[in-house]
Design a protein around this nucleic acid. Structure first.
Lengths: 144, 144
DNA sequence: GCCTGGATGCAACATTGTTGCAAAACGTGA
DNA sequence: TCACGTTTTGCAACAATGTTGCATCCAGGC
């Protein structure tokens, strides 16, 4: 579990009951070094007791809607979930290996995105920018 | 259909037979102003004759493997497909409206990504970078 | 205790993508 | 043209992922 985060407090500040299920989901996502799929979260949470698959989906939807978790689309099937950017968890890009599918977090601040050119011609409102890199991870580079 | 592209030639240069199905899929993707899901492509192609859903998936996989199409993950369910970056179709970021889910292409060149910081500490090989913006589109801004 | 609202569990369904196999289409050499 | 092997397509079945409806449970307020 991420030692810097008080999950109970995070939930209550968002106006959500700090139920056992939500706490367990948050601990799993917050302590894992890379974003997880709903299925992985469900599998991991199930090791410490039962929690329905549907309930996990509903918890994830709720936490994303409240801005506690962030939903990423990293290619491959389905979405991945990670902690939303905050002081404890700074925003960072993600990398996905095209060969083995493994997903890693890249260092925060390592990417600079300059959107000035887009904002001049795009009339909508941009709230979030996600940077996703793809290529070959170290393991796959070593065994070709 | 994109007037600048000769799809038959593109296919043959990639070593693929220029079958009717592949040409129809390419025309649908190439002429649409935004990336499409496999289901949308299948629906559109089906208006001009029959082509099995599985065949559409296989054609898409093949065209992505050959670098003719590009696979994007824009949130929402499933993948989207667009023309791969080329002289005729320059690389560009995409925008997805968080409210209505509509996906638009942003102008090419409007985003500058500086990966130097990442390459210094990341041992894998980065081949492609995808930038995805999220927010509210013009329509959803107008009717809140 | 009783009522109410939110959270959970369960079954069923919907969507998206994949696999195996047979039939059809295509290219090639005789 | 015909036979042959290869590639592409269609079909059925399956697998993975996500959603919906409804019943149940539980905590808090009366």
């Amino acid at each position: 579990m991420c030692s810097r985060c008080n999950y109970r407090e995070i939930l209550e500040r968002a106006g959500l009951e700090a139920t056992a299920g939500r706490l367990r989901v948050l601990e799993v996502v917050g302590s894992h070094p890379a974003p997880l799929s709903a299925a992985e979260i469900h599998r991991t949470v199930s090791r410490t007791g039962s929690l329905d698959r549907v309930t996990v989906y509903r918890i994830l939807d709720r936490l994303v809607a409240k801005g506690i978790l962030e939903e990423l689309s990293l290619g491959g099937r389905g979405r991945l979930f990670g902690m939303a950017p905050s002081e404890q968890h700074p925003a960072h890009p993600h990398f996905r290996c095209a060969r083995c599918g493994a997903v890693q977090c890249l260092p925060p601040g390592g990417v600079r995105v300059d959107l000035a050119g887009v904002r001049r011609v795009f009339a909508g409102e941009i709230r979030r920018v996600e940077v996703r890199a793809e290529g070959l991870c170290v393991n796959c580079l070593r065994r070709p």
